[in-house]
């Protein structure tokens, strides 16, 4: 008993934005997502296994978009489970914990891993957003300036200091993500001006899905 039907009215435009959260295990990626989508915080959250996502609808500058936020497992042993899903991302959120300098140092590795597996053709112009989480915790190891310098040197990405526990800066960070993606799309619009139907299409040449 299977039934199938065909499209007769095609969607004219997709407003679904895929946003991926990357960073070392334990920096608070899942907590950030939960805080943003459900406005909840749980101190005893399990490790994420593999990849999970949640949708959040919001309006930015008068445009309705759906953010599809992808939470990934930060631990090395789950690498093969998460990397296949980098492709098709519209934005990458690189996350570290301000009380863990190693997690900050690893941002470079995360960026490289994303660019490689997402098959990003122009990494310089790809929208990254950097989050320094856990600012509520005492014993800070990474200074704000240090983090801002890194963002500046690596392509001028926006940087947000957040606390999922206290709900600090969360909404702002994700709205910035949405703005960045829309801006990055608009920038490319003139290049594809003839393809009016495919406004959101990126300038990727490889359509293969493997």
């Amino acid at each position: 008993c299977t039934g199938m039907s065909r499209v007769y009215v095609m969607a004219d435009k997709s407003t679904l934005l895929k946003v991926i959260l990357l960073g070392d295990g334990g920096v608070g990626k899942s907590s950030l997502m939960n805080r943003y989508v459900s406005n909840k915080f749980d101190t005893h959250l399990f490790h994420t296994i593999g990849v999970e996502f949640l949708n959040k609808e919001l309006e930015v500058d008068g445009r309705r978009v759906t953010l599809q936020i992808w939470d990934t497992a930060g631990q090395e042993r789950f690498r093969s489970l998460r990397t296949p899903f980098y492709r098709g991302s519209d934005c990458c959120l690189l996350t570290f914990s301000v009380d863990d300098s190693q997690s900050f140092l690893n941002l470079n590795l995360w960026r490289k891993e994303f660019v490689y597996y997402a098959d990003v053709k122009e990494p310089e112009s790809f929208p990254f957003v950097i989050l320094g989480n856990k600012i509520d915790v005492s014993g800070r190891q990474v200074a704000k300036e240090e983090a801002q310098r890194w963002c500046c040197e690596n392509g001028g990405h926006p940087y947000f200091e957040t606390s999922a526990k206290d709900a600090t800066n969360i909404v702002e960070a994700f709205e910035e993500v949405a703005r960045r993606v829309i801006a990055s799309d608009d920038k490319q619009e003139p290049l594809l001006s003839t393809h009016t139907v495919e406004l959101r299409r990126k300038s990727r040449s490889d359509p293969s899905c493997c």
Binding site: M10, S14, T15
Partner: peptide, 21 residues
Amino acid sequence: QEPGLVCCGGDALFVVSAAGC
């Protein structure tokens, strides 16, 4: 919303909105 695609089975009807997501 206006239905785009439909399929059914197992006593359930699945409707994909015309926007497709």
